[in-house]
């Protein structure tokens, strides 16, 4: 199982880190390159910036449920989810999400590996 520190040091796969408020606090250079976002476009912004719009509600509710219960349903396993490119394209990507409590607050990190087929714009 990967740690947040290991994901932050990831050199081959796109990676992001998110705080307990759901704000992006880190994105590696691979993510910037592959997804087309500039760093200032996403750091300090909600995670929903890089999630297709029609999945925002599901994300917010699921994220909030985890923070309330502490019971994960999507962590520590590869998941095929949608991701949003800067140009508005929605792609399938294999996500691997981990969570740790740092200073008594949850922190999340994920590698997001695009899967070959590109789909329609958001």
């Amino acid at each position: 199982m990967k740690t947040i520190a290991e994901i932050k040091n990831e050199k081959k796969l796109p990676a992001v880190v998110v705080d307990t408020l759901g704000t992006i606090t880190f994105a590696n250079s691979v993510f910037v390159k592959v997804f087309g976002w500039k760093i200032h476009d996403i750091i300090g912004k909600p995670l929903t910036t890089i999630i297709p719009k029609n999945l925002h509600d599901a994300h917010q509710l699921g994220f909030s449920r985890f923070l309330t219960t502490g019971t994960p349903t999507l962590l520590n396993e590869p998941l095929k989810l949608k991701a949003l490119l800067k140009d508005g394209t929605v792609i399938d990507a294999e996500h691997f999400i981990v969570a740790e409590k740092i200073n008594n607050e949850w922190t999340f990190a994920a590698t997001i590996k695009p899967i070959r087929n590109r789909i329609m714009s958001d």
């Binding site: 408020l21 759901g22 509710l61 699921g62 994220f63 909030s64 449920r65 923070l67 309330t68 219960t69």
Partner: peptide
């Protein structure tokens, strides 16, 4: 607070 409310609603 909003997250707590949403979390309860989801549950």
């Amino acid at each position: 607070q909003l997250r707590a409310t949403l979390g309860k609603l989801e549950m």
